[in-house]
Every structure is written in C-alpha cells, then in structure tokens.
C-alpha cells in the first residue's frame, strides 16, 4: 500500500531532509506535498488527501500548534494523523499539540530509525521493506 504525506516546515532544507528520510523508511510513497507553514498546509489539504502530516512547531504566519488546532476543528481533517518533528526546546509545546490530537513527537536531531519507529504505527504498518 502506498501513502501520501504532507511535510510542514519553514526550512526548505529541513523539508528536503524529512522527505529523504521518508524514502528511507521503506514505506511506499504515493505522493508527498510540502508547505512552509500551517496556512500553506491548510491550502494543500483543501485540494489533496493525505495519510500523514509531519509538522514543525516554530513557523511564521501559522505555527504548528495553531495548525493542529485548525485541523482538529475541521471535521474532514481531524482524522489525519500528525507527527510533530521539532527541536527539543519546543517539547512543552509538542506536548500541548499531543493533547490537541497530534499522535507523536520526534525531536531534532533524529536518526532515520527514530522517525521510522514513530511513523509506521501511525500508518498501520507493522514493518516496511
């Protein structure tokens, strides 16, 4: 089964790295979209269905916390699993996002295996090639 992803981070370099790590997980990728903040992410979601969202927290215009709040307030979007990928100083905010409905938190810096371990259960995959 192939999955569709949305990566939300204001750093294009970090989005590229998360995309690369996704390809290393062994999960088949049907599509991968990118957004630089929550606002852009909501615009993507207006036109695309995705299976998982990976989001940073500190972003301009609409940060990760505001983005997750919008997601859970929107009936057709609230079921999409959200994995927070951010640096350690935002752990408290990540916990608040988990309370809102985010399903996992990966601290930067991270090993590809760490992302994979968090990702697979959210996709309902026990292991990937």
């Amino acid at each position: 089964m192939a999955f569709r992803f949305l990566i939300v981070d204001d750093s294009a370099a970090m989005r590229a790295v998360v995309h690369r790590v996704l390809t290393m997980t062994g999960v088949e990728i049907a599509g991968c979209w990118e957004a630089a903040n929550g606002e852009e992410a909501l615009a993507v979601l207006a036109g695309q269905k995705v299976d998982l969202i990976l989001t940073d927290i500190n972003m301009p215009r609409m940060d990760g916390e505001q983005f997750v709040a919008k997601l859970v307030a929107t009936e057709e979007l609230r079921g999409i699993p959200v994995l927070v990928v951010s640096s350690a100083q935002t752990e408290m905010r990540a916990m608040r996002m988990m309370a809102l409905g985010a399903r996992g938190f990966v601290k930067k810096p991270f090993l590809p295996e760490t992302l994979r371990e968090q990702l697979l259960p959210l996709l309902g995959v026990s292991h990937a090639a």
Binding site: S11, M14, S87, A88, Q89, E91, K108, P109
Partner: peptide, 14 residues
C-alpha cells in the same frame, strides 16, 4: 547552517 543553529540552539534552550 541556519538549520544547524536552530537545532543546536533549540536543544540548548532545554
């Protein structure tokens, strides 16, 4: 290099 600073600084804030 900015992302490197973000990670080092972010972790140090903790």
């Amino acid at each position: 290099v900015c992302e490197m600073a973000n990670m080092v600084g972010g972790c140090l804030l903790g």
